[in-house]
Design a protein around this nucleic acid. Structure first.
Lengths: 201, 201
DNA sequence: TCGTACCCATGCCATTTGTCATGCGTGACC
DNA sequence: GGTCACGCATGACAAATGGCATGGGTACGA
């Protein structure tokens, strides 16, 4: 039996996924949680073989949780399962030690297939996304530029960003300017959109 | 038997939902489609009792499709099922003749319950969302303000928006200014975020 | 040790943006 | 017919923004 931990904040989706996974005779969904913070405790309690994590969850992001889980339970492999096919997310997932990456666009069989492969010690990455990631490459943004752009995405003024990040306004403008240039955008809003779409934030 | 049409662009979610609905002995999922444009044809072919529509789908939005479906197959009742609990969406769903509105956050039992109620001729709206909608009220934006704000959300400059909407730049600035005032924002980006979050776009 | 990359900051300047006042036309409503 | 809300436009002005140059500090690898 393959023991599975399921983490997704949308109860309807989580329940439905659990139902479809339980249809496989060799699958056993041993835990279902709705937040990232619950994952470590649930994993220690149920010792799953596979942790299926959504990227966006209240509390802690799936990508952060994956890294911790990797250290705490080396026997448990993680698969990231998300709505967003963003190259940057894939890169971060791999860096966090995830063994698989499945996009929610793909058919259910692909998820089942991914779980079997990862359980067998292989890796699985959505083919279309893998190609996309290779084409787009890594994030051109420096850490600070990403911080500033992330805060700018809220829609506040330069003063707001500077206050939130405890920087001078001039510095914020410089980082924004650099980010706008690197993303080939013309306004910070566009830069934020592009960076977000690529998973660079 | 309650005949159900399922429309959701995420194949994994769609498949999982179909699986969980098929567990109910009196439910029959007669059609599964991944785009809004496929819905009318599939509905005519399979004559479902209930159409379960996601809001965001490629092609046509679920809300638009709902209105058409209402006219074409009066016997088929629609339930909107979406990730987003936005008051504005609920208002538009009701206007489009939908009989139910379920948020994907809610547990699977609630969806099953909603389907049974709607099939029985009742209405069903997620309780938390209904309260939210009452509290926030309708959109304060005029049609043109919403247009401008929607275009502004792409991140372009005033000139871009003016060109896209064939308006003068001054007019665009006026609409933006009005929208910023009404949403109590301080930048157009913030106004766009707030309006989007409320489903006013 | 040097070069390089990054972070932080300051200052300057042209452009863009947000705000306001004002005007005109249209359609809805009393 | 008058009033009102709305869309569209123009003009003007203060503030915010985006480029760009410059300089200092730190960390890291050659």
């Amino acid at each position: 039996m393959i023991r599975i931990l399921l983490a997704d904040d949308q109860a309807l989706v989580r329940g439905a996924l659990a139902a479809v996974l339980r249809l496989e005779p060799d699958f056993d969904v041993v835990a279902e949680v709705g937040t990232g913070t619950e994952v470590p405790a649930a994993a220690r309690r149920t010792t799953p073989d596979i942790a299926l994590l959504d990227v966006q969850m209240p509390g802690r992001e799936g990508l952060d949780v994956a890294a911790d889980l990797q250290r705490a339970l080396p026997g448990c492999r993680t698969i990231i399962c998300t709505t967003f096919s963003r190259p940057g997310y894939l890169a971060r997932a791999v860096a966090a030690g995830a063994s698989g990456y499945v996009v929610k666009d793909s058919p259910p069989e692909q998820l089942v297939d991914a779980i079997r492969r990862v359980h067998a010690g292989l890796r699985f990455v959505d083919p279309a996304l893998a190609a996309e990631a290779l084409a787009r490459g890594a994030s051109p943004l420096t850490g600070r530029e990403a911080d500033v752009l992330r805060t700018a995405a809220e829609g506040g003024t330069v003063a707001d960003i500077a206050r939130a990040l405890r920087l001078s306004e001039g510095t914020v403008r410089n980082h924004l300017s650099a980010a706008i240039g690197k993303t080939q955008a013309r306004t910070r809003a566009e830069a934020a959109r592009l960076a977000e779409a690529n998973g660079w934030l």
